[in-house]
Design a protein around this nucleic acid. Structure first.
Length: 422
RNA sequence: GGAGACGUCGCAUAGUCCGGUCGAGUGCACCACCCUGCUAAGGUGGAGAGGGGUUUAGACCCCUCCGUGGGUUCAAAUCCCACCGUCUCCGCCA
């Protein structure tokens, strides 16, 4: 949710933001209108309620013979109070509904436009050159008997897979490397619930335009999370946090579920785009003035991971129209995938400023009372990394060199050797 | 799945039977000051959250909040209903 104060003080800033996202500008004016209607309705209700309270006190204190008349008077008033209360409630809801339709105000410097209008901040590492025809990640993984797509489809349908043998170990190794890095940086590891209540899913902003991306279990009124950002944002919902000792940093390790609706035909080969994967996610609660610096640190930790894995990558500043509704800025780190001749997203980190915190009621105590905190999130490791890792470090015989940083997590293994499929 | 108990302003509790004096008492912790001076005790005062309004500001006034949502009533922490959560016992089960 945006800052209602900003709506009053500088609606143009919000209009500009909506514009650069390609979102509705009109809703801003509707919200402003609803805001003044809301205040009028609240004032009217409170005036009547004050009168009712005063009368109620007189009823309580009155001697018996006067009570009858006073109660009659109070009865008349009660109906008016009730309807004023309902009107105030409706006005409040109308305002809230409209305000929630407004997306987070993008930060200065975020490129305007859509998916293709990102700005490349930097490119790091040499792209691997091959003296042979490189295989794609699935061909390599099948040679290693590490991924079984066909049986994944047999058991669960398209976009499901089995990671097995070296594949399973590789994922765990990447995740554990990430976890160790997170621990070094002072993160608290968390294994969160992956089914959450509607208000939590709603609060994180995933039930807006991308609601059809989310798995829902109607029998239990629960949503399957697409990232542990969701439960980690919910972790401190409706709490007042003490951030005087610095930010709260969590590293959530969870399975993630995505319906991938509307992506038919895209990335159908291998595990680039799947319904279920594992992810280690950084999630930070901090004060708004620290948010941008923290955002840079998150990118730094992500880049550290990719560098350790010997991947070449670029960092992009995602354009406004391609941001989630909660994000005020988003950096993606994209690794070079040789057989695609393209950079593919391996990590994504968003600065949600106070947007999520407002929706979820997460505040901290400052000099002038409480105020919403800022939340940030970013990937530290996921299943998808296997794609870039296998392709980048493959050798002509189909074996794959293990980057040094990963070896301790694979029992010292230096090379992944092809094996007969089973 | 069945039965029962419970859910109060940081923590712990009083209040709920018999609705108005609870716009919520007390203890602990907390903050400020005072007193004393020896590491603690005593005294005084303060202190929650959200919203609306008056105001240059400081400040002041008002409304709402006793798990959540409904209902009864002139009036609900208190009565009724539903839901959620916690605990205990029983049953069932990877």
């Amino acid at each position: 949710m945006i800052d209602p104060q900003l709506l009053r003080d500088d609606p143009d800033a919000i209009r500009r933001s909506q514009q650069s996202r390609g979102a509705s500008v009109n809703v801003v004016d509707q919200a402003i209108e609803a805001e003044s209607a809301r205040r009028a309705a609240i004032s009217e209700f409170e005036r009547l309620r004050a009168e009712q309270n005063a009368l109620g006190k007189r009823v309580a204190a009155a001697p018996k013979e006067e009570k009858q008349a006073l109660v009659a008077q109070a009865q008349e008033l009660a109906a008016g109070v009730k309807s004023a209360q309902n009107a105030a409630g409706d006005a409040e809801k109308h305002f809230s509904d409209l305000t929630r339709m407004i997306q987070n105000v993008v930060l200065d410097g975020v490129p305007a436009g859509g998916e293709d209008d990102f700005v490349v901040l930097r490119e790091v590492g040499e792209r691997r050159e091959f003296g042979f025809e490189p295989k794609d990640h699935l061909a390599l993984a099948e040679g290693l008997d590490a991924i079984d797509m066909a049986r994944g489809a047999k058991v669960s349908g398209a976009r499901f897979y089995f990671l097995k043998g070296l594949g399973a170990r590789l994922e765990l190794a990447i995740m554990q490397l990430g976890l160790d890095r997170a621990l070094e940086a002072g993160f608290t590891p968390v294994i969160p619930p992956t089914l959450v209540k509607p208000e939590i899913m709603e609060g994180t902003g995933f039930l807006g335009e991308h609601a059809d991306e989310v798995y829902y279990l109607p029998a239990d009124e629960l949503y399957l999370v697409g990232t542990s950002e969701v439960p980690l944002a919910g972790l401190h919902s409706n709490e007042i946090l003490d951030l005087s000792d610095g930010p709260l940093r969590y590293a959530g390790w969870s399975t993630c579920y995505r319906r991938e609706a509307g992506s038919y035909g895209r990335d159908t080969r291998g595990i680039i785009r799947v319904h279920q994967f594992n992810k280690l996610e950084m999630f930070v609660y901090t004060t708004p003035d620290q948010a941008e610096a923290e955002h840079d640190r998150l990118v730094g930790w992500q880049e550290g991971m990719l560098q350790s894995l010997g991947l070449s990558y670029r960092v992009i500043d995602v354009a406004a129209g391609d941001l989630g509704s909660s994000a005020a800025r988003k950096f993606d780190v994209e690794a070079w995938v040789p057989t695609q001749g393209a950079y593919r997203e391996l990590t994504s980190t968003s600065n949600c400023t106070t947007f999520q915190a407002r929706r979820l009621g997460i505040r901290s105590r400052g000099e002038h009372g409480t105020s919403p905190v800022a939340t940030l999130n970013g990937t530290l490791a996921t299943t998808r990394w296997i794609v870039a890792l296998l392709e980048t470090h493959q050798q002509e015989d189909g074996s794959v060199l293990v980057p040094e940083a990963l070896r301790p997590y694979l029992g010292g293994l230096e090379v992944l050797q092809p094996t007969a499929r089973r």
